[in-house]
Design a protein around this nucleic acid. Structure first.
Lengths: 217, 217
DNA sequence: TAGATTGTTAATCGATTAACAATC
DNA sequence: TAGATTGTTAATCGATTAACAATC
């Protein structure tokens, strides 16, 4: 089903954006869309929309554009969103608990099945239906339940150590919310969120737009 | 202090990464680093490190590399991290509360001074030292306290509306955790986090590395 | 001085866009 | 048929890298 040669990172990073916008438009009742309209929504050129869509074979209709449902399905399939993923949250602090309670992950097929921590005061407590377990039991848990993705929400101090442990027990996907920058083996994929990086870019733009507006008011 | 011509987005997006790594190395006691070493840590080429650093004037020493402290200060200044920012959290749900409790933002100069919601059941309750206020009082609050950045942690259903309100009361920086995709006026800067986009990219890579490993085990 | 590494330019690489024939 | 919009190539644009003189 893959078109053979691999798809470039810039394209892969834009697909979730298209997916998000298309799902939103579908809710509004939009059945059909052309590259010009979707490009306007997404802030990219119509050419880019069309060329990006070639990674899953286009499927547009000359003269009238793309069927929204078909596009959503194609992107879904391409990104692997039709499968169900089992997640384990490592670190039941503020962020870990917030993600555990977030229903919208579940709706997209990302199902939290375990929550782990090292703090004896919270081990045994429940978040929703799930009991917080000791990190010492992670290995045992992974043997009994297939885990696709570990969410790292421990403090940066312990993050590197925890990530190594997660890799050691055989988990292949890591969604990292800590600040550490780790290199992982070739068969493991890691996606770093780095919230503070995003805030720094915001701070920079805030400063520079302010400065810019002094010259073009 | 700016070198005049504006710095490209790819560069601005890499600077927080360098900053993060340099702060980490500083803690380990590293005083000096050359472009080769930093590039290895950051996963970019030495040429790119050197050419990126030109946006704040280099400041390296031929033959021995860069002073870590000077680099941190230069990047700090360039990104606007030496200032203090006042933040207001809009939406005191799971994510809003997690961000409110997160001490590491405060340490970086991002100070949460207000939390707002529309749910009467939680208005009046406290998160840390801050009382949750009604969103109806945002305008009044902004008149009395300068707010640099609004953090949008309401559900996607209300996000577009809330973002418009935030812009209306004169806030110029928006850190958006909702799923909506909004266009803002030219004098407002928005930084979108889109957690689920990041998870979709992870899902895609997980699927593709799995497939790839069948051919090169 | 010899070795190391920067600052900077020119060459290369890859991503985006413009253009247009194909076709609904 | 005429109008619209895709699929796709060639041209353009911009970002990265290689190379090396400058210099610590």
């Amino acid at each position: 089903m893959n078109c053979g040669k691999s798809v470039s990172n810039p394209i892969i990073n834009r697909l979730p954006k298209y997916y998000r916008i298309l799902c939103f438009l579908k809710k509004l009742g939009v059945r059909n869309i052309c590259s010009k309209e979707l490009g306007d929504e997404a802030g990219v050129s119509p050419s880019q929309i069309r060329s990006d869509f070639m990674c899953f074979g286009g499927e547009g209709l000359r003269g009238s554009g793309y069927n929204v449902n078909i596009l959503i399905n194609k992107i879904s399939e391409f990104l692997g969103l039709n499968e169900v993923y089992n997640l384990a949250i490592i670190g039941a602090g503020n962020m870990g608990q917030a993600l555990a309670k977030n229903r919208s992950l579940e709706r997209k097929g990302f199902r939290v099945v375990g929550i782990f921590d090292t703090n004896d005061f919270i081990i045994g407590k429940k978040i929703g239906a799930i009991e917080i377990k000791s990190l010492d039991h992670l290995s045992e848990f992974v043997n009994q339940n297939h885990i696709d993705i570990a969410i790292i929400t421990v403090s940066s101090t312990y993050a590197a150590e925890v990530i190594n442990k997660v890799i050691e027990v055989g988990i292949k996907g890591i969604w990292n919310f800590s600040q550490v920058n780790v290199n992982v083996p070739a068969d493991v994929v890691i996606e770093n969120v780095y919230l503070s990086d995003s805030l720094m870019v915001l701070a920079h733009n805030l400063k520079n737009y302010k400065t810019a507006s002094q010259f073009m008011p």
